[in-house]
Design a protein around this nucleic acid. Sequence first.
DNA 1: CGTTCAACCTGGGCGC
DNA 2: TGCGCCCAGGTTGAAC
Length: 276
Amino acid sequence: MPELPEVETMRRGIAAVRGARVAEVVRPRSRLRPMTIEPAGPRLRARLRGAAITDVDRVGKRVVIGLDTGERLVFEPRMTGLVLLRDPPTDEHVRLRLALEGAAWPELIFWDRRGLGTVRLLDEAAFRAACGPPRLGPDALGLPAEALRARLEGRRRPIKVALLDQAALAGVGNIYAAEALHRAGLHPARPCDGIAPAEWAALHRALQGVLEEAIRARGSTLSDRTYRTAESAEGGFQASHRVYARAGQPCRGCGAAVVRIVQAQRSTFFCPGCQR
DNA sequence: CGTTCAACCTGGGCGC
DNA sequence: TGCGCCCAGGTTGAAC
């Protein structure tokens, strides 16, 4: 679920925990298979209790909590994870609760229905390995046009597949790759090594525009209504989707039916009339 | 290099 | 009601 705009919305939504100290760490028992929370066992609690939150950042699709111990707590929501201040959609899918003291808000919750997400407490070296190059490329938000092109051009793979490559640039997922390509008028199957300079420029404008608008709308809550902001509100950008999850419906630009294809085992939506 | 498949999980929706 | 499919914002590793 959460791509860059949704994770950025979560990050902004939990700003109130800055300055707090971790009073308690709770991993509720449940019938569900346990998801990845590291370190396992009592060691997470031992390392987190008493730590103060100094920063609330984002890298790609991850929320990064900086601590005065020098370690970082990294939340990776993957498909159905949420970083919440309040009102989790269900109790049984609450995977981690941090009780806080000394700040504007008393708790932080990680909720995940499918449990494919991860929470990891990392020291400086482990954080660099997990969230820096070559594992993750530069963040897509605010990436200069020349950098976008330099990171993606030259190879034969389809532009849609390249946009999803987190090692090339971090943060773009299935929704915003499709929406950016539609705005740029680029067919998702176009090989990167055949894209002209003017098309790279158009793609850069389209990508920055769609990410900024989606953040302003607090992200996209799809039809299963899983994604929520930290305050448990739905996002609003789904109403502005031009192609994503709209197979068979008319393109809002030219009226042609939106098509669904599969690339790299993921759905791709595009308009055959507008995208060449 | 590019592509394909399977796996990790839970749950909603659909056809029968 | 239930069963069996297919689908889903993501990532990883193996195989060809």
